[in-house]
């Protein structure tokens, strides 16, 4: 089972993020760049599938030069090789353009599974698994909280508001996972040393056969018109217990879809 895992470098989830007023893109210089947290679960799941069924895990990202740091982390966790799609022409691409560029890059690799997390913590659109499945012309298994691989058959538990659906498809396919699926491992120092010797390939837009007229900020299908800072958090709701506090709390949690 050869797996391509998609990862994305994002501004540190816990840091205060700002938009650059000049072009309404995220000001990436002011915060630490890290691997999108949910992507670590995707990498872990790929490694687990590889450990159980063999094959090779390739990690792929589209991003600026500094994204190499994140690729090194994935390699040190145990991924076999890394591919870095980097080109100035890709800057500011929207989700639809990015899915085109990524599909082109994936096309240069051989895969049974394209594995990625359900969403990134910066854009939070959650559309990439579906967009990629469409671009690649393969089935999509999304929001997986559990994955079983049996030959070319992949069965998942798809997380829903009410529990889960059991869904299956045959490879090749796109698999989107949520963070409930596993507990990502830490790299080890041995892994860090081994990562230095693993192949890390750089692809330009031209290498991946990407038409640069179809990517980048100028032709993006969506744009940020304006933005305002989020208002301060509103006061919480006080539930007064008049003998029915438990019911009121349960209703509140249910309305928030927490139970």
């Amino acid at each position: 089972m050869n797996i391509v895992v998609l990862v994305k470098q994002v501004p540190d989830t816990w840091a205060e993020k700002k938009l650059d007023p000049s072009d309404s893109t995220v000001d990436r210089a002011s915060v630490d760049a890290v691997m999108n947290e949910m992507d670590e679960y995707a990498v872990e799941e790929a490694l687990k599938i590889k450990e159980a069924h063999g094959g090779e895990v390739t990690v792929l990202t589209m991003g600026p030069n500094r994204a190499v740091e994140m690729l090194r982390k994935a390699l040190s966790m145990g991924v076999d090789k890394a591919v870095h799609l980097v080109d100035d022409a890709l800057e500011g691409s929207c989700a639809i353009q990015s899915s085109y560029a990524l599909a082109q890059a994936i096309g240069t690799l051989s895969y049974d599974l394209v594995l990625l997390s359900a969403e990134s913590s910066d854009a939070r659109m959650g559309v990439m698994p579906a967009l990629l499945a469409e671009r690649l012309g393969v089935p999509q298994l999304s929001d997986a909280r559990k994955v079983d691989v049996d030959g070319s058959k992949v069965v998942i538990e798809r997380m829903t508001d009410y529990g889960h659906d059991k869904v299956e498809a045959s490879t090749p396919l796109v698999l989107g996972v949520v963070e409930k699926i596993n507990e990502p491992r830490y790299p080890s120092f041995k892994g860090i040393m081994a990562a230095k010797k693993k192949p890390l390939t750089t692809l330009t837009a031209a290498d991946a056969g990407i038409d640069t007229g179809r990517v980048g900020l100028a032709t993006a299908t969506s744009s940020v018109e304006s933005f305002t800072a989020a208002p301060p958090r509103a006061a919480g709701q006080v539930v007064k217990d008049e003998g029915d506090g438990g019911v009121k709390l349960a209703d509140f949690f249910a309305a928030q879809k927490l139970i």
Binding site: Y186, P187, F189
Partner: peptide, 14 residues
């Protein structure tokens, strides 16, 4: 070195 940067990142993470 690059590996010492990764090592420090790992230590901080843990």
């Amino acid at each position: 070195t690059a590996e010492s940067q990764d090592l420090l990142a790992l230590a901080r993470d843990i």
